[in-house]
Design a binder for these strands. Structure first.
Lengths: 151, 151
DNA sequence: ATAGCACTGATAATCATTCTCATTCTCGTT
DNA sequence: AACGAGAATGAGAATGATTATCAGTGCTAT
């Protein structure tokens, strides 16, 4: 994420937290920045490494839980069942994931607005047919990433 | 799943297992049948209940692991991070999921072949643009299920 | 019938994650 | 500038889902 953009995002995060009586502490800022710089959702272990153990695991876990509850972060689970976190879509924009079945890496991809419109329409149609009220969708493309293909 | 179809499916499962030197035992048959009758992927707990505790948890877990390794079952993880199992797509056909964010239920949905073709094409395009070799995709439609909407 | 290997089920062990709690920090108020 | 309330931190214990271990059982093929 570029810095001007990142500053605005952090400002927005600070305000959102303040509204809930929470503070945007150094630890939380560290986590938000690490995730803003990541190419895809990170596990708690990834973050612990990325932050060079600057926050103890117990604090990191709590920070992630708090930020996810405040909707600053989104949490999902990878193929092994371990949690991965990324900035919520209101901060990053809507996107999907390329999931490498060999190395386990998950990378963000955006889709052009027109295609995304097509998808949204068919999601509505499918959901409606089942009496389901759709509020969002998630697409994971599974396969082999560029790095693993070379090997 | 209808019975004639189910019989053929079980036959295919038995052969696949035999090829790997494994047996299609009563416990495994029980699990495959329970999943064939389910409207969507089940957690280990769901299965334990559905089978009225007829297999002890340790056996159930091992059975699921073995069947997934043999590609009879597919394993995924729900929003809470707990594992869910369903019959592999070569047995059920390709499909996607409606995920209720209120009650957590996951239900299968199929998409008409034409729409699925459209999706496959755009998945290829997106993946190709990132040097990624796509072998499959998964779409989760998130929202509120019919039952939860009524409440 | 017998040996060899797969299977079962009870139990122990593991791993990610959450909880508890004493301490420290921040910020608004005197 | 000191104070007090609530929020945040970090160490360690506790939990819950899942996996590994192992002794005993049962198929199956020669």
């Amino acid at each position: 994420m570029k810095t001007a953009q990142a500053d605005r995002a952090e400002q927005a995060v600070a305000e959102l937290l303040a509204d809930e009586g929470l503070r945007f502490t150094p630890a939380r800022r560290l986590v938000v920045r690490a995730l803003a710089d990541a190419p895809g959702p990170l596990t708690t272990g990834d973050l612990h490494t990325a932050l060079r153990s600057r926050l103890p695991l117990s604090s990191l876990y709590r920070t992630l839980t708090v930020l996810a509850a405040a909707r600053v972060l989104a949490r999902e689970h990878d193929g092994g069942g371990v949690a991965r976190y990324e900035l919520a879509e209101w901060l990053t924009g809507h996107h999907h994931h390329l999931v490498c079945l060999v190395c386990g890496e998950v990378r963000d991809v955006s889709i052009d607005p027109q295609t995304e419109g097509t998808i949204a329409a068919l999601v509505e149609r499918i959901a409606g047919g089942a009496g389901f009220e759709a509020t969002g969708h998630r697409i994971d493309i599974e396969g082999k990433c560029a790095a693993c293909r070379r090997r």
